[in-house]
Structure formats: C-alpha cells, structure tokens
Design a protein around this nucleic acid. Structure first.
Length: 979
RNA sequence: GCCCGGGUGGUGAAAUGGUAUACACGAGGGACUUAAAAUCCCUUGGUCCGUAAGGGCCGUGCGGGUUCAAGUCCCGCCCCGGGCACCA
C-alpha cells in the first residue's frame, strides 16, 4: 500500500467526526488539562499558513496529554463581533450576521482539513445571543459593583449604599476615584446622603461603579465614527485602518480596570508567561511611586504628582495641562484672552501632532501664583501642552534643575532654573541622576536622592501638604462603541440617569435597523431601531419613544473574549454562564496560545474580568491562564522581479534634464536579476534595443533607473526562478515582457515580509494540504523553528517533512504489503526507540517541537538503515508520532490491527536502561582543542581513565615527553590535557 | 531615549559551560531508468599544506574578561526585530 495522504486524511477526519472521538465530558474521576487557543475573528480572507501555527502546537500538547491519561478540554470558537463585517455591511447592506456565518463556515472547513482534535460540540461565538446574554450579564455585575478599597476587592454596590446611609462618604471611600481626569467628589455625611435626590445619588454612585458612565476624554475617530480604547490607537491613528484620532470629551461607558492596577501587577509574578509579555503588561500598568503635593492657591490648591519630592526646593513654576479643570478658574483677567486662545489651539492639536512635534515648546502664563509648601515662595502657574491631562493629576511641579522637559520649558520662557543636585551644570541641562546628592538649602541638603525622597514625604505629611503616593499609567477602559455589530449594553435611561435592565430581559438582542451607519444626527446605528425602548412596568422592549430609551452604543470587541474561556467549560448552560461544577472541574487554562499582539489589550481585560468574577465568588481562581505562549509570526517570502523604469547617459541631447522615462503604453520589461547586473554594467544587451530604440543611440555608459514588481510566490521555485509560462496562465501580467537569462531562467529577488495579499506572498494551507497532506503541513510548521520565534515560510522546504512521512510509512511495508515482524528488537533498535521517546517526551513538555520533529527524522533514518520492521519498535513510535501527524498514525495503528483510535493509546514510557552504552568515545583535547578521540569503557573511574589516556601512544606522541600541568577528566564527557 | 527578544553555513536552524554547525532545504557528484519523476548513495563553514592517506590554521555580530574549556557566563559596543515613550 502506498502512502495516500488524501484518502487517509479524509477517512480519519470523517471517522473522528462520526465517532465523536474528541468530544470531552466533565469527568471528575480523571485529571483535567485545559489547552486553549486564542479564538480567531473569522475574516473574509480565510486562513493562511501562519494562522494555524499556534493551533498545531496546542493540538500536539492536547493530544499528548490525552495519551498521558488526562481529560483534555481543547475547544475552538469565534470572536465573531467586529469591524470588518460591519464595514462590509455598510457597503453592501448585507447583515453582518450573514457574512460572519459564511466566514465562520469557511474557517471551519479549513480547520477541519488540518486535523485538529477540537471538541466542536463546545464551539462558542461571541455574536450568538445565547453567548452574549452572559457577556451582558457580567456587564450588569460590573455595573452593580464597586471596588472596596478597604478589603481590596469588588463588592456589590448595595453594600456601598448601606455604608453611605450609615456613615456617609469619608476617608478611604473618597479615594477610590481613579480613571480619567475626573472632578473629585467631596466627602459627605450620612445625613447629606439621605438628603440627596435620587438623581444626585445615582450621579454619585457613577463614581464608584466598576462599569460607569462618565464625562471623559476619549479617543474619537471620525472616520470610523467611534471611540477607541487607548490600545486601539497607535501613533495617534487608529490601529485598524490608520485613521486620525482626536481627543474629545463625551459621555462614555468605561470599566474601572484601574481599581485592579496593583493586583494586575502583582498577579504577574506567579504566572508562567514569557518575560517580555509580563514586562509589556508592567509597562502598560506603569506603576510609579512618589508623592502627591498640594500647592496652595489662596484658599484653594493645586495637587500634583511627583516621583521626585526630593527636588521640591527646585520648583520654579507649576504647569497645568491645557485640559485641566483649574485652568479657567485660575487665569487672571489680564491673561484670559491669551490663555483661552492657547487652550483652544492645544486641544485642537491632535494627539498625533502633539507627539510628532515634541520639540515644539509652547505654553502660557495664567497670571496666578501658588505658594511653595516649604519656602512659602510665590510659584507662577503656567499652562503647557507637554503636560498630559490623563496622567497623574494633569499638573506638574516643574523642576528645571532635575527634569529635562521642565528645563527646556524654563529655558524657552526664561524662567528660573534652580540647581537641586551637587555637581550639576544648569547650562547644559537638567540633572536626572538618581544617585546624586541634594544641594538645596534646608533639611534635604547633603542627602542622597532616595533618602531625600523619604525625608521630603515626611515633611510634607507633617505640614499636611502632601503624602506618599503610588500612581499608575493604566487608564480606565472605554467600553462603548458607536457601532452596530457588538453586544448591546443592557442599560436604559430615566431622566438621563442609566439604570440596568433586569436579568430577565437578557439577552438584549441586537435590534433590526434599516442601515448600519450612524444616523444623520451622528447617533450610533442602534438609534435607527424602531423597537428600542424599555417599558419598566411591562418589563419588555417596546417601540422607540414609548418607553425609557435604551443605550445605543455597543460593547467593544474585547468584551466577549474577556470571559469566553469559562463558557467552553459548560457551553450550553441556560441558567448560568457556566455551572460551578464545570468551573471547579476545569479551573484555569493550563496552556493558552496566541499572538503577541494581544499582550496589553485582550490579556489585560481577560485578567481583569477573571479577578472581578473571583471577587464576587463566582469562580475559585483569580488568574485565567497559568501558562501562556506567544507563537511567532510566520512571514511571507515575497518575490520581486526587477523592472527598468528609465535610463539615461551623460551627454544625451535632451530638452530637459529628466532621464528618459519609458513609455507606459509600451510593454514593461521585467528583467531577471542576474541579467540586471549585466545591464547595469552596460555590457551591451542586444535585447534592450528591441524594446527601446533610444538605447542604441547611447554614447557613453548608461545609467538605469530600477524598480521592482511583486510576482506571486507560488510560481517561484527553490532556485528563486520564476515560472514565466505558469505566471502567464495566471493572468494579470499581460502587460509585461520578460528578459530571461541565456538558459531561459528568470531569477527574482526574495524578501521576508509580512504575509499579505498586497505582496502576493500569501500561502494558503488548502493548497499545501491538497499537494502534501495535513500531516506534512503540521510537521513542517513545527519543523520551521522554535514556536515563539518569527520565521519566513518557504514552501520548498516542505519536501523534507514529506519525505520523512513516506519513509516512516515504508518502515511498515514491503512492496506495498504490510510487513511487520514480531521478532524481538535488537539493542540498537531499542536504543533508537527510547532515545526518541525520551527526546520527544521532554521536548513536548518544553514546547520545543522543531527538535522533536528532527528526532523523529533521525529515528526513521536509523531504523531504515537497520531495516527495522519490528512491531515492538514501530508501535510505540507510532503513538509518539500521533500528536504531530495524527492521520498517518491512526491509519498505521489500524493496519497494525488495532480497532480503537490511537488517541486512546497510552503514551509509551522511555527507559534509561536501553540508552546505556558499554563504551564511551572520549574527545581528547589539548588546551581545550579537540585533537583525537579514544574509546573507553563507560564505567572507568576518573583515575583509571586519566592513566589510560596518558598511556595512549598517540597522546604520548603529542606530549613529546612533557608532563601535562593538569588533566581534566569529566566522565562520559571529555578529557582535557593542559600543557 | 527606556524595556524586552535576537545575531551561528547559501537557507530554516541544533547544541544541561565539555567534539560548534544535529535535522532539513538548496547545491554539486553518482546509481537506477530509453528518458523523466520518484527513490537511494556520496560531498557540502572558510582557508592552507599534501599526488594521496592525512594534517595545520581560522571560525557562532565586534572588542575585552572569567575558566582547564565560552555560541553558552561577565563587562563594553554594533546591528536587526518587537513593545513603550513629553508618564512628571
């Protein structure tokens, strides 16, 4: 029987489906293992060979763990809400649910062809109302909770109301205010709380709810017509589409992730995640310790955050962010016009401009002064856009002697620069050294920076002018999107105050709309719905206008993905997001694999929601994934043909100085890259005159202007030669002519780039599977290199893994007839088997799949050389290969006479006794350089070994009668003779 | 600028401080074949000496160091990839 991958793979994929081989039950009798992939957004483009990389890795681990006796949860689903489907809907009027359905079906087909062991009965889709009912439910829990700073966990908001009724809002309670720049609410007594109107109470509670509606600065993207989260904005433009983003103040649903900043930071320590990923999260959370300092302004004050309270004596001015609420209040009448103009221009400048023009220093004096808490000196208050509204308090105490930005601002506006450290040269710049000695006159003089910091905080606290404080860079997460294709937010409004829908109203399904665009008045698409109001008494959705209006923004893409891993545990539960029994059984994700682009977005919200659900006692763990691996990107190997854009030579008679541009109407000439070098040397290429008569008229060395044209990679062979004939059949290149080498070949240039339609370098897994099979694809993806590393895809290398599988198959067959012997295996055969089992077992545990594939190849090469067809060797080897190449393994397993799926077979154990050797070949080195090899019994003692080596005639010869200074003997490793 | 990764043959890459380049691609040579495909065998870091067998020297981005021994550890650079960035 010849190895027929098409038949074998189709058969087994069908069998797995029919026999529900990979359906998993919640079976508390067995140990569990949860292997999860970050679920994909089903885009219209389908999968390319880069996408399944992580899925293959997790599938290998899942299959391996099954062999090792674990009950494995290995599900897959779709993150199916998202912008592309909606954009497409806007263009075509087609409902996004329809395109999503089609794309998901296509993904499913592609995934099935790769032979994954997913339990598809547990599939989830975030856009399915049965799923998003629970996303909405969790949102309601967030809305109905606050973060209790006293116990450091989320609690029901009812407890807070109780507290307000009993003792009002004092001390710690008033400090939970985090998030964006907000007007701080003052403390109030129980009596005051009771006297508040319903409206006021609800407004106050907004400051505490974990899901809250606030007036906040948001990243508004006019082109997308929506608000973006901070991590959706890159370099001042939207991550998707690259549209400009501006700062805008508007009503906005936010989640109070900042309340969890410290726990999100601390939790990282115990996670088995990559260092760089943890570092990215730490960076993003951005904890800094310092002090909060209040500068009195008449009977009011400005609060600043500083990491360097030790430099307080160097404060020569205060700078407020242009957006700061106190700017208007403090500006004197004389300065008002100037300040207002500045604030207007600064807020109109986009984030992008403000980032790009860092060198442009701008600011304006408010006319007012604050009082220095220590010296009582008058400190001028300025406004400057180098101060960010969203960080700290939106105000800084400027110390030009210790901070370079302050220094530049002071220089620009000729403000005083006071040295704060010994040995600093104020003419050159600020001294930002953290190991300097403070030189300011007063109690800090002579102290080292760290000591001065604690002393300064002490003094501030004594005066009541400030205290030690920790600040985070992390902002609250914008949660509303002015979009259709997302989860509706289950909120209705009475008197402009948001109220939660009752649980019985969930899921709040997406309403029917006539168009998916915003309304003419700029409201989100949901405002178009005819049935979009809530009747409080009937408890049902009614016609728009006939009840309380429902929220019209929808949730962002990361809502569903923040908790989906829990739904897989109990996907069809209608009573709860997942039953406590299921959650208790499956617990945390044991292995989570996905791309590193999610490191600060998804993975932070994912951890935040988990901690929140934990606080409410809904789940028994507060981190979602114990181990996380980022798979590297598979890049494309673009192919480019060189093209002549023009040529010229010195002294050409010409009307202008432009080089001779080649006429667009003529066919463009693509030149094989080696030929191009000849042309550049102007070695007289006769073909050129056929195309351009002007070329013959050249009178001196000709200079060429080159460009390049992308050609589809599938027509390029392993020698970087383009198959011109095949390309012509493909179409799209009719306008080109090809200038080949003398042997008719056409060489292209190769370049590693992102895999993208644009570069014509996309490789589709379907084509690879059609030609080589899924098992070969799986092996090759793993063989390419370490999982976490980015690497280019080159289809030609796949021949190696394809040959390997055929060689493996051939071990079982002789002249296409199954020929497996029951004779006991030889020591050499056993050694190969057990060396392979050892290496593969260890490699899977440490996710080093490329080296396990190499080990399988070594095993097959050795067994082929030994002409081994022993059952006792081939059977365990087949099990070991099955996680990597499951179809061929199943087929051979069946051929060996087994009736049950190989996935139920027990993982073969390796034994050290088969690996032991009687002899060891020692590399004998002189001064660290290997010179010869000598074989000795492996059990020889150090001393005997040394004597035997020195007695060897070849060694004697090299010693030339000298006595070695030292002989290093490492048993079973090396002997080093030092002369 | 700061923080993470990473630099090893023509290419993808391997190597608990212990024989650098396993495995694979590509390339070159050969066998089988009327031929091709497939398959199998040999060679393949550089360089020098030798007719040959064989041997010498150099070699893991660069420069130092530790060590009997460094791709691996330490110090200082350079380059590439990723993340963050007027963050007070």
């Amino acid at each position: 029987m010849a190895y027929d991958h098409k038949k074998i793979e189709a058969d087994w994929q069908r069998k797995w489906k029919e026999e529900k081989t990979f359906h998993v039950k919640n079976d508390p009798a067995k140990p569990k293992y949860y292997a999860l992939d970050m679920f994909p957004y089903p885009s219209g483009a389908g999968l390319h060979v880069g996408h399944p990389l992580g899925y293959i890795a997790s599938d290998i681990v899942a299959r391996f763990k099954r062999h090792a006796g674990f009950n494995v949860l290995h599900p897959m689903g779709y993150d199916s809400f998202g912008l592309p489907a909606e954009q497409y809907a806007i263009q075509t009027g087609q409902h996004p649910a329809k395109t999503t359905e089609e794309n998901a079906a296509r993904y499913r087909e592609q995934l099935d062809h790769i032979g994954f062991s997913f339990d598809w009965s547990r599939e989830v889709r975030t856009s399915d109302p049965k799923f998003y009912k629970w996303t909405q439910w969790i949102f309601l829990q967030l809305f109905n909770s606050f973060y209790d700073a006293r116990t450091n966990k989320a609690r029901p908001i009812s407890e807070l109301i109780e507290r307000f009724e009993k003792s009002g809002c004092q001390g710690q309670d008033a400090e939970v205010l985090t998030g964006d720049v907000e007007e701080i609410i003052g403390p109030f007594t129980a009596e005051e709380w009771k006297s508040f109107s319903e409206r006021t109470r609800q407004m106050v509670l907004q400051y505490f709810r974990l899901a809250y509606l606030s007036e906040a600065w948001v990243n508004w993207c006019p082109a997308l017509g929506t608000v973006l989260a901070n991590d959706e904005v890159k370099d001042g433009v939207s991550e998707r589409g690259g549209h400009p983003v501006e700062r805008k103040r508007m009503h906005q649903w936010s989640l109070r992730i900042t309340a969890y900043a410290q726990r999100l930071l601390d939790g990282l320590d115990e996670l088995d995640w990559s260092g760089s990923l943890k570092e990215a999260q730490r960076n993003w959370i951005g904890r800094s310790t310092g002090a909060s300092v209040r500068f009195a302004v008449d009977d009011d004050f400005i609060e600043v955050f500083t990491t360097r309270p030790d430099t307080l004596f160097g404060v020569s001015f205060i700078t407020l962010a242009p957006e700061h609420v106190l700017v208007g209040k403090y500006t004197t009448d004389a300065q008002r016009a100037e300040v207002e103009a500045y604030v207007k221009s600064a807020t109109n400048r986009s984030e992008r401009e403000r980032q790009a023009e860092v060198d442009k220093i701008s600011g304006v004096f408010t006319g007012r002064y604050a009082k220095h808490p220590f010296t009582g000196a008058e400190i001028p208050i300025w406004v400057g856009d180098y101060v960010l509204a969203g960080y700290g308090t939106g105000a800084v105490m400027a110390v030009p002697g210790g901070d370079q930005r302050d220094w530049r601002f002071a220089r620009h506006f000729d403000l005083p620069i006071i040295p704060v450290t010994e040995g600093a040269d104020m003419a050159k710049g600020a001294d930002e050294r953290k190991d300097a000695v403070i030189c300011s006159e007063g109690f800090l003089k002579g102290l080292k920076v760290p000591d001065a910091i604690s002393r300064a905080i002490e003094e501030l606290e004594k005066l009541g002018a400030g205290e030690g404080r920790i600040n985070y860079r992390l902002r609250d997460a914008a949660f509303g999107r002015q979009r259709y294709w997302g989860e509706p937010i289950p909120i209705y409004y009475k008197d402009d105050i948001p109220y939660p829908l009752p649980e019985s109203a969930l899921p709040l399904e997406l309403p029917v709309v006539d168009k998916f665009q915003p309304t003419e008045t700029g409201e989100p698409p949901l405002a178009r719905a005819k049935q979009w109001a809530w009747d409080e008494t009937k408890k049902k959705i009614v016609a728009t206008g006939e009840g309380a209006p429902l929220e019209t923004t929808t949730m962002p893409g990361w809502a569903g993905s923040s908790w989906y891993y829990l739904r897989y545990m109990d996907p069809h539960n209608e009573e709860r997001f997942a039953s406590p029994e299921a959650i208790n059984y499956w617990q945390q994700i044991d292995l989570y694999i996905g791309g590193s682009e999610h490191s600060t977005g998804h993975l932070l919200y994912f951890r935040f929601w988990t901690k929140f659900l934990y606080d409410l006692g809904l789940i028994p763990f507060d981190e979602p994934a114990k181990k996380l691996v980022n798979q590297g990107m598979i890049q494309g190997m673009s192919a480019k043909a060189r093209v002549i854009l023009g040529f010229d030579w010195p002294g050409r008679e010409t009307e202008d100085s432009e080089p001779l541009k080649l006429n667009d109407r003529k066919k463009r000439v693509l030149v094989s890259s080696s030929k191009a070098e000849l042309i550049e040397n102007d070695s007289g290429i006769p073909e050129l005159s056929q195309h351009w008569n002007a070329y013959d008229g050249r009178t001196s060395k000709t200079y060429f202007e080159w460009g390049s044209v992308y050609v589809p990679v599938q027509y390029v062979n392993g020698r970087d030669e383009l198959d011109v004939a095949e390309l012509s059949k493909h179409g799209g290149f009719e306008e080109f002519e090809f200038l080949t080498e003398t042997d008719g070949g056409f060489k292209v240039l190769r370049d590693v780039e992102k895999m993208s339609k644009r570069w014509l370098n996309v490789v589709n897994p379907d084509e690879i599977i059609e030609r080589y099979g899924a098992d070969t694809l799986r092996l090759y993806e793993m063989f390419l290199g370490p999982l976490e590393q980015s690497k280019p895809w080159d289809t030609h290398g796949i021949e190696g893994t394809s040959r390997f599988l055929r060689k493996f198959w051939n071990l079982f067959f002789e002249s296409d007839i199954l020929s497996v012997s029951d004779v006991a295996p030889s020591a050499a055969e056993l050694k190969t088997l057990h060396a392979t089992l050892k290496k593969v077992t260890e490699d899977i545990e440490r996710m080093s799949f490329n080296t396990s594939v190499a080990q399988f190849m070594i095993a097959v090469n050795e067994l082929s050389a030994l002409k081994c067809n022993k059952r006792d060797i081939l059977e365990p080897l087949t099990i070991a290969l099955s996680p990597f190449a499951p179809h061929i393994a199943e087929e051979l397993w069946k051929q060996l006479g087994h009736s049950e799926s190989i996935s139920k077979a027990r993982w073969p154990q390796w034994h050290a006794r088969f690996l032991e050797e009687n002899n060891f070949t020692y590399p004998i080195s002189f001064n660290g350089k290997t010179r010869l090899q000598l074989e000795f019994p492996a059990n020889l003692t150090k001393d005997d070994l040394e004597a035997a080596v020195l007695a060897n005639p070849e060694v004697q010869q090299r010693l030339e009668g000298k006595t070695p200074k030292k002989v290093i003997v490492v048993p079973k490793r090396i002997v080093n003779i030092v002369l």
